[in-house]
Amino acid sequence: MESMRVVHYLNQFFGGIGGEDAAGAEPQIKPGAVGPGRQLQARLGERFEIVATAICGDNAFADDPAGIAERLIALIAPYRPQLVIAGPSFNAGRYGQGCGQLCAVVQEKLEIPALTGMYEENPAVEQFRDRVLIARTAGTARHMGEALYSIAALAARLARGETIVQPAEAGCFARGLKRTVFRDDDAAKRAVDMLMRKIAGQPFVSEISVPKFDRVTPARMAASLANATVALVTDGGLVAKGNPERMPTGYTDRMTAISVTGRRQFATDDVEVHHFGYNTQFVSDDANRLVPLDVMRDLEREGVIGKLSETVYSTAGAGMSLANARKVGREIGQRLLQDGAQAAILTST
C-alpha cells in the first residue's frame, strides 16, 4: 500500500533555525523530516511519509496570521500532502496560535485533514478546538515522545477514516460535535449507575461536559459611591423601540447600546424587550422592572451616586455560548471604560 504523504509544520526553534532571536523568520520549507519530525516519522511508521517540513518564526506568524498561513499553504501545496501535522506546541502561546491557524487554513484551502497537539491551557485550544483536531499533550517539550505518540495514534485513526466519537478516550480535545450513539442502557439506569458509583467513591464519567469558566479577579470601587459614575447593563434583552439594530432574541454574539440621556425612566414608547428565554410581558409593560433607570435617576439626583452613565448596554443572554458571552462581555467592559463608568449594575433574568 502506498504511504500517506504528510507535511509537518514546526516553528523556528524546533525547525532548527534559532531561538527567540530567529522568531521573525519568514515561512520556508525543507524536504523530508526535520528535528522532532524524525521522531514523528518513526512513530508514524511506514504507512506515512513526511515529505516536507514547513517552518516559520513565531513572531512572524503572530504578526500576520492570515497572510503567513496563506504563504505557508503556497509552499506546502506543491508537495501534494494528504495530511498536515503541526507542532506539537505544548503550552507555547504564539506557536500554538500558528499551529491552530495553519491547520484550520489547510483544511479549508487544501481540503485535507490537519492535526496538531497542545497542552490544555494553551489558549489556542479554546480558539481552534471546534475546527481542528488537537491531541492532548503535557505542558513542556520534555514530554515530546509521549506527545508524538498521541499525535501518531490520531493520525493512524484519521488514515483509517475513523470518526472519533469519544475524544477523551482518543486523547484529543472535544470539538464540541454531537453525534447520535446507541447505548445498551437507558438514561435513567446510566444515571443511577453513576450515582451508585459516586456514593461508593468509585470513579465515573459524566455524560455532560461542564464548560470551564474563567476566574477573573474582581475589580474594586476606586471612588466613593457619591463620586462614582455608575452604569446599568442587562442580559435581559432590552432594545430601543422598534429594535432598529435587529437584535436577536438569543443565540447572539452582539450587544446594543441604548442612550438614556434626558430620560428619567423607561416608558413603553422608548424601549422593548426581545428575549426568547423568559416571558417578557411584565418587563415589556414596564422596563424599569428589568433595568432600574427610574430609581437610579432618583439616586443620582439625591447624590447617593455621583452620576448615572448615560448609555445602557444590553444583550439577550439566552442560549449564548461561552465564547460569545466572553466576546460580548469584553465589548461591554471596553465601552464602560470609554464611557468613564466606575461601577456597573448588571441585571439578569
Binding site: V216, A219, A344, S348
Partner: peptide, 19 residues
C-alpha cells in the same frame, strides 16, 4: 483596570457558579 460589578439576578446559584 476593570469595572466593579454587582449582579441582580434570581438564579443566584448559576451566577455564583460562573464566578
Amino acid at each position: 483596570m476593570g469595572v466593579p460589578t454587582a449582579q441582580i439576578c434570581s438564579m443566584k446559584e448559576v451566577a455564583a457558579m460562573v464566578g
